[in-house]
C-alpha cells in the first residue's frame, strides 16, 4: 500500500529508528576552520591553480584520448587532491559534458595552425631516441572563479613524442598571455594508490615553460622525459625561459621525491 498520506509517517518512523552518534563538535569545528582558511588561500593561489588545472586537463586528455570521460576526471582528481593538500585552491571537478569536449584529436601542423591565434613553433632538439611525433589538438577547460563555472577555453596544441622504449611525453604549445602570471615551478600529483585515510602521498614533477614569439611551450618532467632533456629542447628552440613561481613547493632541494602531507 502506497498512499501519499501514509508515506510521511512511515518515513518518520523509519528515521526515528536511526540512532545518531554524539555530535563530533571538534571535527565540525576543524572543518569550519579549514573552509575559512581555504577561502583566505583562494585569492593568492588561484592563478597558479588555474594554470595547473588547464595544463592538467590537456595533459589528461592527450595522454588518454580514447579513454572514457570518467577516467580523465579520475586522473585530474589526483592533481586536484594534491593542490588542495598543499593549501592551494583547486577548482571543482569539471562536468562530464565539458570534459567530453576536451577529447583530443590528431591534426597536421597546417591544420593546427589554422585553429589557433598564435604562431606555432614546433619543438626541435628532441632526444635522439624519439621515433614518432604526433600533433594533437584539445580544448582547454577554464574555471571561472567569479561565476564558479567551467567553460571550454581556446584550443591548445600538444606535441606527443614517442620514444624507442615505448614511453611518451608531451610538449604543450599555447598562446602567450602576459596577464596569466608565472607558471608553477612544480606540479604535484596525489599518488594513485593513496589510502583513503591517513596521509596523502604526493609526487612532485618539475614544470618548465618557455616563450618563442607569441607561443608558450611547456613540459613537465616525468619518467619519460628528464628535466635536463627539457632544458635541451628549450635551448635548441632558443626559447626564453619564463620565470616560475614556487608557491606550494615544500622547502627541500630534492627532486622527484614523494611528499607525505598529513
Amino acid at each position: 500500500m502506497f498512499p501519499d498520506a501514509v508515506l510521511p509517517q512511515r518515513l518518520e518512523a523509519m528515521l526515528d529508528g536511526i540512532v545518531a552518534p554524539p555530535a563530533p563538535l571538534d571535527a565540525i569545528r576543524s572543518k569550519m576552520l579549514f573552509a575559512r582558511s581555504e577561502q583566505r588561500q583562494r585569492a593568492r593561489s588561484l592563478r597558479v591553480a588555474l594554470v595547473a588545472a588547464s595544463v592538467i586537463a590537456v595533459l589528461a586528455c592527450v595522454a588518454m584520448p580514447m579513454r572514457s570521460v570518467g577516467l580523465v576526471q579520475a586522473i585530474e582528481a589526483r592533481y586536484r587532491a594534491a593542490l588542495r593538500a598543499l593549501g592551494g585552491e583547486a577548482p571543482p571537478p569539471a562536468p562530464a559534458a565539458l570534459v567530453s569536449h576536451l577529447i583530443s584529436h590528431d591534426v597536421t601542423l597546417t591544420k593546427a595552425q589554422s585553429h589557433v591565434n598564435f604562431t606555432i613553433v614546433p619543438p626541435v632538439g628532441l632526444p635522439p631516441d624519439v621515433v614518432a611525433v604526433r600533433i594533437v589538438m584539445a580544448n582547454t577547460g577554464v574555471y571561472s572563479r567569479t561565476w564558479h563555472t567551467w567553460t571550454v577555453g581556446p584550443p591548445s596544441v600538444t606535441f606527443v613524442c614517442r620514444r624507442r622504449n615505448g614511453n611518451s611525453f608531451q610538449l604543450l604549445a599555447d598562446r602567450f598571455d602576459p596577464h596569466e602570471g608565472s607558471p608553477p615551478k612544480y606540479l604535484f600529483e596525489a599518488k594513485d594508490d593513496a589510502q583513503t585515510s591517513g596521509p596523502l602521498v604526493l609526487v612532485r614533477h618539475e614544470h618548465f615553460a618557455w616563450r618563442n614569439g607569441d607561443q608558450v611551450m611547456s613540459a613537465t618532467e616525468s619518467n619519460a622525459l628528464r628535466a635536463s632533456e627539457i632544458e635541451s629542447i628549450r635551448a635548441a628552440m632558443h626559447g626564453i625561459a619564463l620565470p616560475r613561481r614556487n608557491l606550494h613547493a615544500p622547502e627541500t632541494p630534492e627532486k622527484g621525491k614523494l611528499y607525505i602531507v598529513p
Partner: peptide, 18 residues
C-alpha cells in the same frame, strides 16, 4: 552556534544515513 550544531546534528546524521 555550538548549541545549534548539537540541535541539527541528529537530524543531519539521520538524513545522511538514510
Amino acid at each position: 552556534l555550538e548549541e545549534l550544531i548539537r540541535a541539527v546534528w541528529p537530524e543531519a546524521y539521520r538524513i545522511a544515513f538514510a
